[in-house]
Amino acid sequence: GLSKLKKVTDTTIVIPNDKLLTVAPDLPLNMAFRVSDEILANATKGIVEMVTKPGMVNLDFADLRSVLKDSGYAVIGVGEASAAQSKDRAIIAIENTLRSPLLDVDLSTAKRALVNIIGGEDLTLREAETIFQEVASRISDEAMLKWGARIEPTMQKSAIKVMVVLGGVEFADYSEVGIKKRIAEQEEEIDLDEIFDSKEERKGK
């Protein structure tokens, strides 16, 4: 399904449901899927605000389009550092973003990246650059990387939020080789001879 969808879309954002086990393993099934929906809703809200709210270093729709157009598979990571973590908040915020269990992909395969940094009035240029450089060090050396920063006066002092959109990433499970491998494994699990023998036995009875 994903491989077919990829052929007719600019970008297919992948959020594997099995990663819910690491996010909400003990929640009832319906509530666990709500967690996934909430993560996706927050990511969507972040993208909308990124291109509609003015920033100190601005990102607009053209930047978003340049990252997502014809990029194949993409992932979105959102993370933050609280006021209590103010000492190393820039590193903590980007690490929380890149280590999100729903951003389960080899980051070095990303061919394009968009980084949006949101902080209070005490956000510094050095912190923004630290986050930018950390993302740059994780993705391909040839990747296109755009970043923006916005001051949010209503945000709790010393807190930082980061959103990263990675385009052109590669999922081994969703490649043609990976899909063929899974199909072969599923076919091996189905013993056709056993099925036919069982039918013949029932007919004999």
Score class of each variant (00 low, 15 high):
residue 54 P to F: 03
residue 70 D to H: 13
residue 56 M to K: 15
residue 58 N to R: 10
residue 79 G to F: 01
residue 72 G to T: 06
residue 55 G to D: 11
residue 77 G to Y: 05
residue 66 S to H: 06
residue 73 Y to C: 02
residue 83 A to L: 04
residue 70 D to I: 01
residue 57 V to T: 12
residue 70 D to S: 15
residue 53 K to S: 14
residue 68 L to E: 01
residue 52 T to W: 07
residue 67 V to A: 08
residue 64 L to G: 12
residue 82 S to Q: 13
residue 76 I to C: 01
residue 65 R to K: 13
residue 64 L to K: 06
residue 67 V to W: 01
residue 70 D to Q: 14
residue 77 G to H: 01
residue 53 K to M: 13
residue 64 L to W: 03
residue 69 K to L: 09
residue 56 M to R: 14
residue 83 A to D: 08
residue 50 M to A: 12
residue 83 A to C: 05
residue 67 V to G: 05
residue 82 S to G: 14
residue 83 A to K: 14
residue 63 D to Q: 07
residue 67 V to D: 03
residue 75 V to M: 02
residue 53 K to N: 14
residue 57 V to N: 11
residue 70 D to M: 10
residue 67 V to H: 04
residue 66 S to W: 02
residue 62 A to T: 14
residue 74 A to E: 02
residue 74 A to C: 10
residue 63 D to I: 04
residue 73 Y to P: 02
residue 59 L to P: 09
residue 77 G to K: 03
residue 60 D to K: 07
residue 77 G to C: 10
residue 64 L to A: 13
residue 58 N to Q: 15
residue 83 A to W: 06
residue 78 V to P: 00
residue 52 T to C: 08
residue 54 P to S: 09
residue 55 G to E: 08
residue 83 A to T: 08
residue 50 M to G: 05
residue 63 D to R: 08
residue 70 D to R: 14
residue 73 Y to T: 02
residue 51 V to M: 01
residue 75 V to W: 00
residue 54 P to M: 04
residue 62 A to Y: 10
residue 76 I to H: 00
residue 64 L to V: 08
residue 80 E to Y: 11
residue 77 G to W: 03
residue 80 E to A: 10
residue 78 V to W: 02
residue 67 V to I: 15
residue 53 K to R: 12
residue 60 D to G: 13
residue 56 M to A: 15
residue 71 S to E: 09
residue 55 G to H: 10
residue 76 I to D: 00
residue 77 G to P: 08
residue 52 T to I: 08
residue 59 L to W: 13
residue 81 A to H: 03
residue 73 Y to V: 01
residue 69 K to F: 10
residue 62 A to C: 04
residue 64 L to E: 02
residue 76 I to R: 00
residue 80 E to Q: 13
residue 71 S to G: 12
residue 80 E to K: 15
residue 60 D to W: 04
residue 77 G to Q: 03
residue 53 K to I: 15
residue 73 Y to R: 06
residue 72 G to K: 05
residue 74 A to G: 14
residue 56 M to P: 00
residue 60 D to T: 11
residue 79 G to W: 01
residue 69 K to S: 11
residue 53 K to E: 15
residue 50 M to D: 05
residue 51 V to A: 03
residue 72 G to C: 06
residue 55 G to K: 09
residue 78 V to G: 03
residue 70 D to C: 06
residue 58 N to I: 08
residue 64 L to N: 07
residue 76 I to W: 00
residue 65 R to I: 06
residue 52 T to P: 06
residue 52 T to L: 13
residue 67 V to R: 05
residue 62 A to R: 09
residue 53 K to H: 13
residue 65 R to P: 00
residue 58 N to W: 03
residue 72 G to Y: 04
residue 66 S to A: 13
residue 59 L to S: 07
residue 82 S to D: 13
residue 55 G to S: 11
residue 60 D to M: 07
residue 52 T to R: 10
residue 61 F to M: 12
residue 82 S to W: 07
residue 74 A to N: 04
residue 60 D to N: 14
residue 83 A to R: 11
residue 73 Y to W: 07
residue 82 S to L: 11
residue 60 D to C: 07
